[in-house]
Structures are given as C-alpha cells and as structure tokens.
Amino acid sequence: MDLFGISFLGLNVVPIILVIAGLVALRMFFNLNTLAWMAAWWVGLYLMLSNGITVPLPGSIVGMFMGIITLALLVYLTTSGEDLEATKDFMVKFFTDSRYSPALLAFLVLLPSLVAYNVYTGMTQQPQAPVFGRTIHPPPPTDITFKGKKIDLVNDDNPYRILKETDPDAFAAHVANGRKVYYQNCVNCHGDDMGGNGMFAHAFDPIPASFKDPTTIAMLQESYLFWRIAKGAPGLPDESTPWSSAMPAWEKFLSEEDIWDVIIFLYEYTGYEPRAKEELH
C-alpha cells in the first residue's frame, strides 16, 4: 500500500507525521539556536503545505501562506523582549477581550473567504501556455558553407567595406544594390524604416528584429550578420528556437554579393557602425 496515499480529513497523514516527528527530534536531540530552530519550522511548514494536503495547493496559495509564516517568524525573531511583551499583550486582548469580538469575527470570516477565493481563481484560471526562453544572439559557428564555398566567419570580413575609403563610387553602387535587395526581400518583416514592423511582422513570434534597436546590428560583426542572413532561422542552434523564427535562409534567394551589400545598406541606413573584429581578441 502506498504509505503516502493515506489521508484523513483531506490531509496526507504520513508527510505531516514525518514533519512533526522531525521537529520533535530536532528539539530533543539537538541544541539549536533560535535562528536554526526558526529555519527548521519554516522548512517543516513548507513541507506540510506542499505535501500534506490531498489536493495539491496551487503555488500562489502556498506562496501566500509562506509569506504569512515568514512574516510571523520574522516578527518573532526581531522583537526584543519588551516589544514581544507588547505584541503578546495585544494578541491576548484581541483574542480574549469582548471589546474586540467584532474584529475577531471579521478575522475569522475574512481569512477563510480569501483562501477560498484564491483556490477558486487558481482552479478556474486557464493554465498558462508554456513559455520557453530563447537566446537572441547565440555564438556563431566558426565557418559556414555558402553555395559550396567555405566562408570563414572568424577571419573573413565584408569584402566591399574597404571601398568606402578607396572607391566611394563603387561603394555607392553596393549600397544601392543592398537597398534594392532590402526593399524586395526584407521590408515585409523588418519594415520600411528598419523598425521591425513590416506588414507581416505582427503574425510572427519571435517578432522580426528592429535594426534601429542598439542591441542588434550595432553590436554585431558583419560576418555574424552574414551567417544570420545566409542561414536564417534553420541555421540557429537549439537554444535560439530555430523552429519558431520566421527569418528566411537567404542562401536560397541571394548571391554572396547581395548579402554583403544588404549588410552594408543596413549600416548606411541606420547610421550604425559594424562591430570591429579586433574587439573580439
């Protein structure tokens, strides 16, 4: 027979007896100081609340009770002798003096009602859908294969960036191509102004990144963006939930040059600078 299944008056007898026995044993065989003794009470009461009742208490109610218990123990611990006397005096009056009868009655009615209400909301509330965290910027692989060609994400950099200094006209042509790539492919999700609010953005979870946000492209290297754009959601590691992101794998649509160009365009449009390689080392 399952010992832990024995119940009486809606209470699981075995855990409760175990906890009480534990406390008694502590008292009898160990010379605990007050603090340790309080801690033992705290743990004991917690075990009773979470295991001692047949229909498991909703977390919120255990929390509520533990809050009250913690408060009570704290009051007990911190009150010096005199305060303790005063508190005790008040409690004695409250519980015994007929002047306080109406308040005592209210206390006796209100607390159980509150508990019942809490149980009700806990049980009728629709359960919350599971929420899983996701790493937004996982560490990138060291290299990827792009249409049969190996791209070294550690050492390779945007081959066209240098043109900004050496050949501004050629650079402008790359910006213009990047702009075309963006407005033909990315605008639906990342938005007309890069704010991440394109016309389909509201239908996706996680939502498309805002490139205006200082925590996206402003703190990433261009080779990191190349990886994210080329491989999209399916290229993400598990901690970044590749199965739920709508970010396409652009290697299916775009050439290597198109991708470096759209990266240049993202920085030119937002005014951010890519994070430099040196900062890594």
């Binding site: 809606g10 607390l111 159980p112 508990v115 019942a116 809490n118 049980m123």
Partner: peptide, 12 residues
C-alpha cells in the same frame, strides 16, 4: 472547485 474551496477555507 467547490470541494477544495470548502476544504481550504475550513482548514484555515
């Protein structure tokens, strides 16, 4: 929820 509500209220 009625059973558990009564139960916890009574215990309290």
């Amino acid at each position: 929820p009625v059973g558990p509500m009564m139960q916890y209220a009574l215990l309290t």
